[in-house]
């Protein structure tokens, strides 16, 4: 077990802060039960844990780093990123081994995984980078499979995928990828849909909700929140350009957003 030996004379930073202890264990149990959380919620949980165990509260980033150092052995990691849909900071417990989709096999049958893969494909390859799938279209897919799912079974399965945070039902009723899928299945998505999946030029994470360059052959995509940070306030209507090809950038040329 990798318990860090502390150097002598480090009065300023007691080693309890950098050593994996009861607070980390309980936080891991919490993350195993939640899988994905808004970072603000995760910090509230961390505070609650410190109160309960009468432990000093460390910087949250440092706390997460201590956990990651230990759990990487078992191919797990806490990954901090930004929610594409509402720009809030989130934290997720992810498998770092390449067999992500196989991990689903712990709670889904092979046929159910087959259906989920088909839904992923339809979402990712949707026309005009809509990254969404209408609910009727999703339900129609079940009966097409071999062996077929009845319409009712298909609806139940879709509900389960939503409850387990693999899919999300947008307010217009369309199915989109839940952030859990985007984070946990990123290698699968990148490898399977090389042409459709783009990484944000700013943060290098997968982008399914954001803005794109108006030049059709240019591959630049930006998350909504990354674009907001990159382009200065458009107070005087000054022209903004694509950081790569220089084409005039239209902020309303979006992908993965609700279409009129």
């Amino acid at each position: 077990m990798a318990t860090t030996e502390t150097m002598n004379g480090q009065e300023q930073h007691p080693h309890e802060m950098t050593e994996y202890n009861g607070t980390h264990r309980l936080f891991m149990q919490s993350m195993l039960s939640h899988r994905i959380l808004e970072e603000s919620q995760a910090e509230v949980i961390y505070e609650k844990i410190c109160d309960m165990l009468n432990a000093d509260k460390a910087d949250f980033g440092d706390f997460v780093a201590v956990i990651n150092k230990e759990i990487s052995d078992v191919d797990l990691a806490l990954r901090r990123t930004v929610d594409e849909y509402n720009s809030s900071a989130i934290i997720a417990l992810v498998n770092t081994r390449g067999d992500e989709v196989a991990q689903l096999a712990t709670t889904y049958t092979a046929n159910e995984i087959g259906f989920f893969k088909r839904v992923l494909e339809l979402i990712v390859t949707a026309d005009d980078e809509a990254f969404s799938l209408g609910s009727m279209a999703a339900i129609r897919e079940g009966p097409k499979l071999k062996p077929a799912f009845s319409q009712r079974e298909t609806e139940e399965l879709l509900n389960k995928l939503v409850a387990d945070k693999w899919l999300m039902r947008r307010r217009d009723g369309y199915y989109v990828l839940h952030m859990r899928s985007i984070i946990e299945l990123q290698n699968y998505l990148k490898e399977t849909f090389e042409n459709e999946i783009h990484e944000c030029l700013m943060c290098m994470e997968i982008v399914t909700v954001g803005e794109r360059c108006s030049q059709g052959r240019c591959e630049v995509r930006l998350h909504t929140h990354c674009a907001a940070g990159y382009f200065p306030e458009q107070d005087n209507g000054s022209e903004i350009k694509c950081p790569t090809c220089g084409t005039t950038w239209a902020r309303d040329n979006t992908i993965g957003t609700i279409r009129q």
Partner: peptide
């Protein structure tokens, strides 16, 4: 040992 240490299980 690892289960106890990492997850308290």
């Amino acid at each position: 040992a690892k289960l106890r240490h990492l997850f308290g299980m």
